[in-house]
Design a protein around this nucleic acid. Sequence first.
DNA 1: TGGTATTAGTTGCTTTTGTAACTATCAACG
DNA 2: CGTTGATAGTTACAAAAGCAACTAATACCA
Lengths: 140, 140
Amino acid sequence: MSFDLRDFMPYLLNQAADASSRDFQSYYRGKYGMLRTEWRVLFHLGRYGAMTAREVCDRAGIHKTKVSRAVAAMDQKRLIRREELAQDRRQEMLHLTDHGRRVFADLTQEAQRFDTAMMSEFSTEEIAQMRAFLTRIAGL
Amino acid sequence: MSFDLRDFMPYLLNQAADASSRDFQSYYRGKYGMLRTEWRVLFHLGRYGAMTAREVCDRAGIHKTKVSRAVAAMDQKRLIRREELAQDRRQEMLHLTDHGRRVFADLTQEAQRFDTAMMSEFSTEEIAQMRAFLTRIAGL
DNA sequence: TGGTATTAGTTGCTTTTGTAACTATCAACG
DNA sequence: CGTTGATAGTTACAAAAGCAACTAATACCA
């Protein structure tokens, strides 16, 4: 019986995912007191523009309760502004504030820095193959 | 500004890790009411033999409070048996029970099945390269 | 010895996540 | 219109994770 945990791809993926996220996570957590879902919501709004919570859910694949809580926290922190929609008062459009935009810029830059540093040990082909593999596994 | 979430390796890794773990997780959860840490502890004991909680912590890289709770739950479920050590009464040796061994066998088999199924779309070289990459990222 | 520092493991408390139920609004159709 | 069903988002409650403080036992060393 030679089956080792390192032979189990989900284990490897989880370990790699944890290791790769740790530093960046402590960055946005330490600097802005943000949670992972908040960073993701911030990213989507900063990258793709204002949208409703439901759109964030759909695009990011995050459950609506998580988004709802992240939005509330980000509102508190003045990272976003909520705009009631006259045509459908159930929805609200989420906009980044100026502050939100600055934080987005900082975190995006930092994310790229982390990514570049982490990938610097690998060749371009390795990285490309890696992305293809992960994208497929993730079902993206 | 072209930075996309899919260009961010930690994001890809997390998505892939989540996707790859989901089904197996619901298997051991549904069938045995086990949590991820419990499965890991079970695996270590089944694969490497009886050891103390501390050894599990070291080998698996899991914090001692998580292991402590997992061990308590597994004891409850009669998956393991705790043996007080005379030479150092702070420690206890953790052994799988017969039931624990059967569950280990079932989950290991199932894990291999999942792994095989998931990897079946990839070539041997791709998988090897993948493992090398992930192992390095994970710092294993 | 005996006092201090370590170590194994547990417990309590706080934060975060998961799940289901809820409110408010809108759509659809008789 | 008005009733029924869907949808956006929130809230309440339970499960799980994280962190710090704690207990009990052992090691170290003056």
